[in-house]
Design a protein around this nucleic acid. Structure first.
Length: 449
RNA sequence: UCCGCGAUAGCUCAGCGGUAGAGCAAUCGGCUGUUAACCGAUGGGUCGCAGGUUCGAAUCCUGCUCGCGGAGCCA
């Protein structure tokens, strides 16, 4: 047996050309041509083509290869060489084989499958090349997020997943029974806790799962997703927008630097990502409305009887998908839209001192139709103003007493934003559907596997 | 919640009133540089469920179930 030979991961093959090594992995696909066989192996670090020549191996090894099926697990001994025709491609000239387990009738065949079928087999789908590439990009985005904030002296503070009340009062939450304390909810944002933490640690970030029980059925929505939410004491809206731009540039350039192979598997147009450098675009809400009307982007109003009428976009209305799409069509970089009408935004956002009808809010829209990836704002730091906002939004004061404490004891201007991990990965990978960005996605009509 | 679309072999789909089909996968055979390899053969079906129209329904009609996409909401 050749157990003395070193085990080498496929990703390291380029450093071991000419050496005899062992590969521990699975059969990805097999092609054969008479006395030649081309099994493809994967081991989690990559995929490599094996070459088995009948004249070079014993009869028993050849016969063993003939029994291999897709996704059977194997330990293969062979010599690494360069591909005779392709640049920067390596192959394994096989001399010996240990079969660990033979897989029977692996359901995901090398042919097209529908999304529903693949979603049912998500636990197996993750083994395929595309999903491998996406998860590796996701991993890199997560690392970039952590590194970005850690390098800038932010402290990671985890917010609770189980919360006693709604943050914004608008979205639908997952409800659960919490012993004798009554109803509790799965968090839809760690922001309020982020604010409290920022008063203790200056600059913090919350990074964890978030839950929304809305019945959204689109390519942009999951019911469970990850969000990173930095929150900074003594930051105003301008500083926050600048940080958000630096942050997004950092993430994209980092993925471009470290995960080119994965992006290539996904056939991503790298030139589109290379352009994601500052300065990004910025547009006030008011200017955006003006632009929409100048370019005849109408708002479709639906009446109760189902009839539709097209009207000029009225100032004060929130943007929907058609408006965001039209605005972004002119840009190949992200664009921040800031200073929205206060009425369409959350209670905790600070009013613009120069125009109280505006909130110091901002959204970052990504290009190529990727949509909103960031939402943020400067927070209301006045006790009296915040109290008034709670009343305007018909929110009870009692559950927010702890939050009001932040304005009672050493209140300071502060700001923050939230970035959706899966939407960012979807954009960077150039995916059609957000479901592929989560290893085990949760959607309105699916919570399995 | 609203508006569209769909359900036929393990998978992807064609068939749209007259004996249920193809490609891939599976099984068997052929091929020494293949790249979702290719070539030949074999097996494989409660046409989502229930009812109706008809001499005859996968096909037309009604209801139901499940799913997909979009809107709204948002990251």
């Amino acid at each position: 047996m050749s157990s003395a030979l070193p085990h080498v991961y496929i990703s390291e093959f380029k450093h071991h050309v000419g050496e005899q090594v062992r590969l521990k992995g699975w059969v990805y696909n097999i092609r054969s041509s008479g006395k030649l066989m081309f099994p493809e192996f994967r081991d989690g670090s990559g995929i490599v083509q094996g070459v088995v020549s009948k004249k070079d191996v014993s009869d028993s090894v050849w016969q063993q290869f003939e029994t291999l099926t897709q996704e059977s697990s194997v330990i293969v001994t062979g010599t690494i060489s360069k591909h005779p025709k392709l640049e920067n491609v390596y192959e394994l000239h096989v001399s010996d084989l240990d079969i660990i387990h033979i897989a029977h009738d692996y359901p995901i065949t090398p042919k097209e499958h529908g999304v529903e079928f693949l979603a049912d087999k998500r636990h197996l789908w993750l083994r395929s090349k595309r999903q491998w590439a996406i998860m590796r990009v996701r991993h890199e985005v997560i690392n970039a997020i952590r590194d970005f904030f850690n390098q800038r002296d932010f402290t990671l503070i985890d917010s609770p997943i189980i919360t006693p009340n709604a943050v914004e009062g608008t979205t639908t939450l997952f409800e659960l029974d919490y012993f004798d304390l009554g109803k509790a909810y799965l968090t839809q944002s760690g922001q309020l806790y982020g604010e409290a933490s920022a008063m203790a640690f200056g600059k913090v970030y919350v990074f964890g799962p978030t839950f929304r029980a809305e019945k959204s059925k689109t390519r942009r929505h999951l019911t469970e997703f990850w969000m990173v939410e930095p929150e900074m004491a003594y930051y105003d809206l301008e500083m926050t927008m600048a940080l958000a731009e630096e942050f997004v540039e950092y993430i994209v350039q980092r993925v471009l630097e470290k995960r080119k192979e994965e992006l290539t598997v996904l056939e991503r147009d790298l030139t589109k990502l290379e352009k994601i450098t500052r300065p990004f675009h910025r547009l006030s809400y008011t200017d955006a409305v003006e632009w929409l009307n100048k370019h005849n982007v109408k708002l479709i109003k639906k009446a109760a009887d189902g009839s539709e009428t097209e009207i000029d976009f009225p100032w004060g209305e929130d943007f929907g998908a058609p408006q965001e799409e039209a605005l972004m069509a002119q840009f190949d970089k992200p664009c921040i839209i800031h200073r929205y009408p206060a009425e369409v935004k959350a209670f905790y956002m600070k009013r613009d001192p120069e125009n109280p009808k505006l909130a110091l809010a901002m959204d970052m829209l990504a290009p190529e139709g990727a949509g909103e990836i960031i939402g943020g704002s400067q927070r209301e730091d006045s006790y009296e103003a915040l109290l008034e906002r709670l009343r305007e939004h018909n929110l009870p004061q009692e559950p927010f007493e702890w939050y009001l404490d932040l304005r009672r004891y050493g209140s300071v201007p502060h700001s923050g934003f939230g970035l959706g991990l899966e939407r960012t990965v979807k954009w960077i990978c150039g995916l059609e559907h957000i479901r592929e960005t989560s290893p085990y996605p949760r959607m309105i009509y699916r919570n399995t596997p």
